[in-house]
């Protein structure tokens, strides 16, 4: 690892983290806004903990993200393997195009059409409809993340497994899936990103008091976003970062013990 690439990595990481540190910095501001820093306070953190409605929203947001990403990863993984196994050229490119429709469609269209869809099917708006909608728009991104890994793996392995008499089930579970692990992981992470960021789709398909952080933040925009939101984001950010570090140390030890997974 030479200095050039090391400094490149550092610069990019600073670029990516700078806005977040900026938000975190102002979460301690007595001034009440993100303009001038007047003094240090922990008030916003205190009021987040005391604010039951806000805590509910945070828990909802995390729940929706995890559940929808989990389901989207399974569906997307199956979809990607299915697309990979199709041999007819036109069928494959048609399906792949359909796959990407939701990626190109602006959120307003997705939100409005899902609202109509849920109304037709009589699905009550609330946590279920929001999770369904998030699964819907996360599946294509999972597929796009997994497909390159599939194409890249050595297809001879699959053929060899077949020749050795492995059942189709075994080929998929013992050969294919372990080979594309990074793709699956990437798909899951991107599904999380899509879910946590979404505002417009959630807005249209939510109801019965169910709300996520993004919806709350956008609704606040007219009156100015309170620093409580900065405080929440800082907490979420720190927690996620801590979990990643723990993961890093745990996997590091595993490697040292020679137990690579």
């Amino acid at each position: 690892m030479n200095t050039l690439s090391r400094s490149f990595l550092t610069v990019i990481i600073i670029f990516l983290y700078f806005p977040i540190l900026y938000l975190a910095y102002y979460s301690f501001n007595t001034g009440g806004s993100m303009t001038s820093f007047e003094g240090f306070t922990l008030d916003y953190y205190k009021s987040v903990i005391e604010n039951k409605a806000l805590m509910t929203v945070i828990m909802n947001t995390i729940a929706v993200a995890l559940i929808s990403s989990g389901f989207a990863t399974i569906i997307g993984l199956f979809g990607a393997i299915f697309l990979y196994l199709i041999r007819q050229k036109y069928v494959k490119s048609t399906l792949l195009t359909l796959n990407n429709v939701l990626i190109v469609s602006p959120d307003v269209i997705i939100g409005a059409s899902l609202l109509i869809l849920f109304s037709i099917f009589g699905i009550k708006l609330g946590s279920t409809s929001v999770i369904l909608a998030h699964i819907a728009f996360s599946v294509p991104i999972v597929v796009l993340m997994i497909l390159p890994s599939l194409y890249q793996q050595n297809s001879n392995l699959v053929l060899a497994a077949h020749d050795l008499g492995a059942s189709a089930f075994h080929v998929v579970t013992k050969v294919l899936i372990p080979n594309i692990k990074p793709g699956i992981f990437a798909g899951f992470l991107m599904a999380l990103t899509y879910s946590l960021d979404d505002f417009a789709v959630t807005f249209f398909v939510t109801g019965n008091g169910f709300s996520t952080l993004s919806v709350e933040i956008y609704a606040m925009a007219r009156r100015g976003i309170t620093l409580e939101i900065n405080a929440i984001s800082t907490v979420i950010f720190v927690v996620v970062l801590t979990i990643s570090f723990i993961y890093y140390f745990v996997s590091d030890k595993k490697i040292k013990r020679g137990k690579t997974t």
Binding site: L16, L23, P182, D197, S214, N230, F237, Y248
Partner: peptide
């Protein structure tokens, strides 16, 4: 530690985009 560094690149995407945009305005 490839996966760890990859996570480091992904984590910023989990903070709300409107909020990050306000940070950029600042």
């Amino acid at each position: 530690h490839k996966t760890f560094w990859l996570l480091i690149i992904i984590i910023p995407t989990w903070i709300n985009i409107l909020l990050k945009t306000y940070a950029f305005i600042g």
